[in-house]
């Protein structure tokens, strides 16, 4: 398998991870009442890959 195909295969992973992170961050910024301090969630979302955004979405978000 040539290099460019492999890069193409890896791109979705990168997109999803970045996408989740950016989506969670934007949502956090707009969130008027997250479950816990905002800065903590921001750090978690950026530092802990995949799991950080997921944790924010299931625990930190609360409906708004």
């Amino acid at each position: 398998m040539d290099q460019s195909t492999i890069v193409l295969l890896l791109l979705p992973i990168l997109f999803i991870q970045l996408g989740l992170m950016i989506f969670a961050l934007v949502d956090l910024i707009k969130n008027p009442n997250p479950n816990g301090p905002k800065w903590m969630w921001a750090v978690l979302i950026v530092v802990v890959n995949i799991i950080g955004p997921i944790l924010y979405l299931v625990i930190g978000r609360r409906n708004y």
């Binding site: 996408g19 989740l20 989506f23 949502d27 995949i50 979405l57 978000r61 409906n63």
Partner: peptide
């Protein structure tokens, strides 16, 4: 609350 998008994506 975007659950229908992000859960499948994960």
């Amino acid at each position: 609350n975007y659950k229908i998008f992000w859960i499948p994506i994960v």
